[in-house]
Simulated scan of single mutants.
Amino acid sequence: MELVILIRDVPLVEEYRGGILENVHNGIVCGVNEKGEVAYRAGDVNHITLLRSAAKPFQAIPIAKRKIDEKFGLNNGEAALFAASHRGEVYHIERLESILQKTGIQENELLTCPTYPLNEEPKFACLSQGKEKRRLFHNCAGKHLGYLALSKDQGYSTHDYYKAEHPAQQEALEVFASLADYPKAQVQLSVDGCGFPVFALPLKNLAIAYLKLACPDLIEDQKTREAVERVTGWMTSSPEIIASHNFICTALLMDENIIAKGGAMGVYGFALKKERLSFSLKVLNGSELVWPLIIASILEQIQYDNPETIDRLHALAPKAIKNDNQLVVGEKRSVFVLNKC
C-alpha cells in the first residue's frame, strides 16, 4: 500500500529583500472540476476555513429568490451591493443611499458599526470635510440592507435579522450547505466582523460551492439555480460595486468568464465558467496583499487563455518590492506548484 503523507500547508509566496528571504506566506490551494472532484491541490484541502466575506454571494441567494431588487425597484448596481464588500467610494455610497430611499429602511436599523470608508481617498475626504462616521460606510452595509429589505418583505422580525436563528439566516445556511455538498449540521458557525454568522467548512467544499456559482446548471433546484444566476448577474454587470477600482474582486469580475469573491483573513474563492473549474485558497497569516500574485500563478499554471486578466492581477501586486523612495529593493515570488490529481 502506498504511503500518502499529507502536507497541511505550503509556501505560496516568498518575499526577498536584497536577495535575502524576509517573509513567507504559507497557505493552501484547492481546485475542483465539474464533478466536484479535487483536480488540483497544494496543501491540505480539508483544512477547515472560515469564509468571512467570501460567503456573501451565497448569503445573497435568499434575497435573490424573493426578487427583492424587482420589488423595490433596484437596479443592478444597487442590488450588487447585497454581495459586496464595498470600499466606500462615492459610487458605493450613492447607491446605498438610494437603497435606503427605495426600501424605506433607516440607516440606524443596520447593525453595522459607524466607521469611515476603507479606501484612503474617500476616508480622507470625510476627515477633511469633518464628516462623521456612518453605518453605511461599513463594507458590509449592502449585505445588511439586503437582509433588512428581505425581512420587511417577508414579514420577518428586523431587530434580530443578523442572528443565526433568524429565518433568513437559516435559509442562507441551508442553501450554502447544499451548494457546498456538505451537511448543514456540520457547517461550523462563528460571528463575523459585522455581526453576521460566518460559516466554516473544508476548503474543498468552498471550491465546490463556487463551482455552482459559475456553472448553475449543476444546481438541481430550479429556484436556487435562478437565484444564483440573478446574484452572479448583479456581480458581473457591476464589478466595481463588489469591491472598487484597483481591487482584486473587481479586477477578476471584469473577466466575464470569472465569478470571484474574497473574505477577510486571506480566504478567496473564484470559478471559471468555460473551464468548469473552481478554486479556493487560504493564506494562513491572513494576508490579502498576496492574493493577486497567488491567483495569477494559479491561472498561469492551468494555462488560462485570457492574458489581460492575468496582467490586471500583476498590476495590482507587482513582483518588485520598492522602498519609501520608490527604489526597487527586492521581489515577491510565487513559489507553489499545483499538484494535479
Rank of each mutant, 00 (worst) to 15 (best):
R52K: 12
I302H: 08
V29Y: 05
S151I: 05
Q129S: 15
R225N: 07
I99L: 07
H25E: 01
A243G: 15
I258L: 12
L277V: 10
L96F: 01
I63Q: 14
L203K: 12
Y268K: 03
K261C: 02
L293S: 11
K322T: 13
N325D: 12
K332C: 03
T115N: 07
L81I: 01
A79G: 04
I68L: 12
A55D: 02
F336T: 08
Q301D: 03
Q106R: 15
L293P: 07
Q170V: 13
K184T: 12
W234L: 00
V32Q: 10
G193P: 12
T103V: 05
S53A: 02
A164T: 12
I310Y: 01
A209Y: 11
E70V: 11
D324I: 10
T112F: 00
P216H: 05
E300M: 01
L293E: 08
P307N: 06
F58C: 12
A177K: 04
F270H: 07
V38S: 00
L21R: 06
G142L: 03
P117M: 02
E89N: 11
T236E: 11
K102G: 07
H144A: 10
D153C: 00
T115A: 04
G262D: 13
K35H: 13
E89D: 12
A125Y: 15
A125L: 15
L3S: 11
K261S: 04
A60E: 13
D153L: 13
R87S: 08
F176P: 05
V29N: 09
L148G: 10
K261E: 01
A177L: 07
L277G: 09
R66K: 15
L100R: 06
G88K: 08
E120Q: 10
G130H: 03
E107M: 11
L203P: 14
E275V: 04
K273V: 09
G269I: 02
G146Y: 01
M1K: 15
Y91P: 00
D255P: 05
F58V: 10
C215D: 14
S53K: 07
A260K: 06
P183G: 02
K163G: 00
K322P: 00
K261P: 03
K71H: 10
V283T: 07
R41C: 01
S128D: 09
I68V: 15
V191H: 11
D221C: 00
N285G: 08
E220C: 07
F124H: 10
N306E: 09
C140L: 07
G18S: 10
K274M: 06
K123A: 04
G330H: 08
Y182H: 03
M1Q: 14
E220V: 14
G27L: 10
N108S: 14
Y156C: 02
Q129D: 12
V335Y: 03
R312V: 08
I298L: 10
D221Q: 14
T49A: 08
A80D: 06
V90L: 05
E256C: 07
N246Q: 09
A315N: 13
K133M: 15
H47D: 03
I63C: 13
Y40Q: 02
C140M: 06
Y162P: 02
L110Q: 10
N33I: 09
K322E: 11
